[in-house]
């Protein structure tokens, strides 16, 4: 009897210990396009134009509704990118300043009129002496068109040789380009969520946010949660803080209720509008004026906790940038957060 029990025991151990995940094969019904009702705030664009044989179309990514790799005769590569920015408040000069900024003081610049589809736009030509290992291309041609409340950017970039070779093709492409708006979910092109976007499929916010977030290198990206799709951790010594970026429609529930909600999170009493006005500071950003608040309290475990929050109304949305954590980390990264918001390309 004892031996039988020992054998059963041994088999039970082996049965559990040998469990190993295996490749699974199954059949499913054909997956059709998801039957989703149209979303009122997320239009999709279809951009077509005449392209030469050495342009290879790539999947659209985030704000890039069309992009191509341009192959030069010497083997080097450039790229053509098309980006629409709807409802953008920044002026043309402010946008041009961003391009110029990339080239520093050695920028060479010229501009002329160009036909984009059936409309007239402007073509800017920037070049500079970039170091070989720089991420900034040697030359950029940017065509700009403002049409139906959308700012369109067509950018050809690469080294001098590639851009020079592709210049005429780029002009032809601009002349022939067609910009069509399609219903959401109907695009057949693969879409990629690159560069610091979350893997989260549980939110559509990421797709509507700018793709290229210039976050400082010492911000460690964290996986998103439904309430905060963009999250970063910052540290200083042994102290840490969490940065969340959220965008809400309209005023996001109002300034004072949100501030008081944050205060409640660190066990501070609510304040009224008059008190709030005394405690806020204002900063300038590319999208307008933002307000900064800085409170110190304690968290649920009664540990000292500080919140630095920046609230920025931009267009039909309000952005919330919030850093919560221990004083050391918040203090060390407060300036970085403010600079990030000021450099944020909306």
């Amino acid at each position: 009897m004892r031996n039988i029990l020992l054998i059963i025991s041994g088999l039970a151990v082996i049965a559990i210990g040998c469990k190993r995940e295996e490749v699974k094969v199954y059949q499913i019904p054909k997956e059709s396009a998801p039957q989703v009702m149209p979303h009122q705030t997320a239009p999709e664009w279809k951009v077509t134009g005449v392209t030469p044989a050495n342009w290879e179309q790539m999947p659209s990514t985030g704000m890039r509704v069309a992009q191509y790799i341009v192959k030069g005769k010497d083997g080097s590569q450039g790229e053509v990118v098309v980006m629409p920015m709807a409802g953008m408040k920044a002026s043309k000069e402010e946008i041009l300043a961003i391009w110029r900024q990339q080239f520093g003081q050695n920028v060479k610049e010229s501009s002329r009129k160009v036909k984009i589809g059936g409309d007239e736009g402007e073509l800017y030509d920037f070049s500079g002496n970039q170091p070989k290992d720089s991420n900034i291309p040697e030359r950029i041609l940017v065509a700009m068109l403002f049409k139906d409340n959308v700012n369109w950017f067509f950018r050809l970039s690469g080294n001098n040789t590639v851009v020079e070779e592709a210049q005429n093709d780029f002009i032809n492409y601009l002349n022939s380009v067609k910009l069509e708006q399609s219903a959401p979910g109907q695009s057949s092109e693969p879409k990629v969520n690159p560069h610091q976007m979350q893997p989260e499929r549980n939110t559509t916010q990421a797709e509507q946010m700018p793709v290229e977030l210039p976050v400082p290198e010492n911000w460690k990206q964290l996986a998103p949660t439904p309430m905060a799709p963009l999250r970063y951790e910052v540290t200083s010594g042994n102290s840490t803080a969490l940065i969340t970026i959220t965008r809400l429609d309209g005023d996001g529930g109002g300034l004072l209720p949100n501030i008081n909600r944050w205060r409640g999170q660190i066990k501070l009493a609510p304040i009224n509008q008059a008190d709030l006005d005394k405690q806020i500071t204002k900063i300038k950003t590319t999208a307008g004026e933002a307000i900064v608040v800085d409170f110190s309290g304690s968290n649920a475990s009664n540990e000292p906790t500080r919140i630095v929050g920046i609230i920025l109304p931009a267009g039909n949305h309000t952005w919330f940038f919030k850093m919560t954590g221990q004083d050391g980390a918040v203090n060390a990264h407060k300036d970085g957060l403010i600079k990030f918001v000021q450099s944020f390309k909306f």
Binding site: E21, V23, V25, Q27, K30
Partner: peptide, 14 residues
């Protein structure tokens, strides 16, 4: 296959 899709799922552990 016009009738159905065949899925081969390889677990992350492999």
């Amino acid at each position: 296959d016009p009738q159905a899709d065949t899925v081969v799922s390889i677990p992350e552990s492999l």
